[in-house]
């Protein structure tokens, strides 16, 4: 292919407006050729707000019927339950896809996408943008090299009182969202956890669901590991404010990874907890720092160089597999706050 990479963006909701479209416009060799949305007027409005005038379609069918519309790759930023059908339609038409996380609503759907990509010889990437944050690879290196000792325990948490309100409101229904806060907020860490330690040996899971998508959950992960067992807890909430971050206890001290802003890694040695060491790679590449730009750049390069993207559909399936395992182990959280039943005796 010569010239620009012709990109279609499917879905013109909040994540497209806030992240995918600005990322595409930041890359000179990417041309936003089309935006597809069942609400074409909104798609046109979003495009106009960025001063561009791509082709606007109400469906994939409309795009495919428009012979003049040639697309090299598509970003799929639509409700989770639509990922599978849209991705397969694109892949079968020879269009590579970058799919917003999670890859799909089930392992079976994820496998269908991965197989369609393999058959078509096209790229299927998953939008776990944290792989493109400087913090995640640095943490992986610190953990693997046992730079600050061997990890024994960890806690990951993040909670807000509500927040992100998708225009389609697909998050209100477990069938369309594929789950609750574990999927919406926790899936990034699930992916990160697999990247850091691989698949856990055993898991536990509790949530507050009473038939709908859970608003609060807690997961426990146990790893055997060559360097000794690791136990971790992840806590996510859409009903309670919980400061976000990852804390790891090693045999030498405490590592704290905060995710706000550009993020940081700090170490407090057990022997001198009052002294804080802040970790960074110490080199600047001069490359763009916006993770969505880097993610799209990787997707485009993967398509052009015919190589796998940084986060493949197969990796996305492993995240789905762990999410399904957690939900299969589900136990309800005690919630009868006034009776005291199920709570620790004060």
């Amino acid at each position: 292919m010569t010239g620009s990479f012709r990109l279609a963006i499917i879905g013109s909701g909040l994540i497209t407006q806030a992240s995918h479209l600005p990322a595409a416009l930041a890359l000179p060799k990417v041309q936003v050729t089309a935006i597809i949305d069942p609400a074409p007027a909104r798609a046109a409005q979003v495009a106009a707000s960025y001063g561009i005038s791509p082709l606007i379609f109400g469906s994939i069918d409309d795009m495919q019927n428009a012979k003049a519309c040639q697309i090299d790759g598509a970003v799929i930023a639509t409700p989770n339950h639509t990922h599978k059908d849209l991705a397969i339609r694109c892949l079968e038409a020879g269009i590579s896809v970058l799919i917003e996380k999670p890859l799909a609503n089930s392992v079976a759907d994820g496998l269908a996408i991965a197989e369609a990509a393999e058959q078509a010889g096209r790229v299927a990437a998953v939008g776990y943008w944290r792989h493109f944050s400087g913090i995640t690879p640095l943490l992986k290196e610190v953990v693997d090299q046992q730079y600050f000792g061997t990890v024994k325990r960890f806690v990951h948490q993040f909670g807000t009182e509500g927040g992100w309100a998708p225009l389609s409101a697909y998050n209100l229904d477990r069938r369309t969202a594929g789950g609750g806060v574990l999927v919406v907020s926790g899936s990034h860490f699930i992916d990160q956890l697999l990247y850091l330690w691989g698949y856990p040996d055993t898991v536990e899971f509790r949530d507050d669901s009473a038939g709908g998508p859970e608003g609060h959950c807690e997961a426990v992960f146990n790893f055997g590991g060559e360097s000794g067992p690791i136990t971790g807890i992840a806590r996510y909430s859409k009903t309670t404010r919980i400061p976000g971050g990852l804390v790891l206890e090693t045999d030498r001290g405490i590592l704290t990874v905060t995710e706000s802003g550009e993020g940081s890694i700090e170490f407090r040695a057990a022997a001198s907890p009052g002294i804080v060491q802040t970790i960074s790679r110490g080199t600047r590449t001069g490359a763009a720092t916006d993770e969505f730009v880097l993610q799209l750049q990787d997707f485009v390069d993967a398509c052009l160089e015919r190589r796998p993207p940084r986060v493949t559909a197969r990796q996305g399936i492993e995240s789905l597999r762990l999410i399904e395992l957690l939900y299969s182990q589900r136990k309800p959280m005690a919630q009868d706050w006034y009776s005291g039943r199920g709570h620790k005796d004060e």
Binding site: E161, G162, G163, W164, A165, P166, A169, N171, L172, D173, R174, G180, V181, D208, S209, A210, G211, G212, P213, E214, G215, H216, K238, T239
Partner: peptide, 14 residues
Amino acid sequence: HSSGNAWRLTRHGI
């Protein structure tokens, strides 16, 4: 008014 803050209710599937 907004689905973003309705998690305490949506968990009931109502």
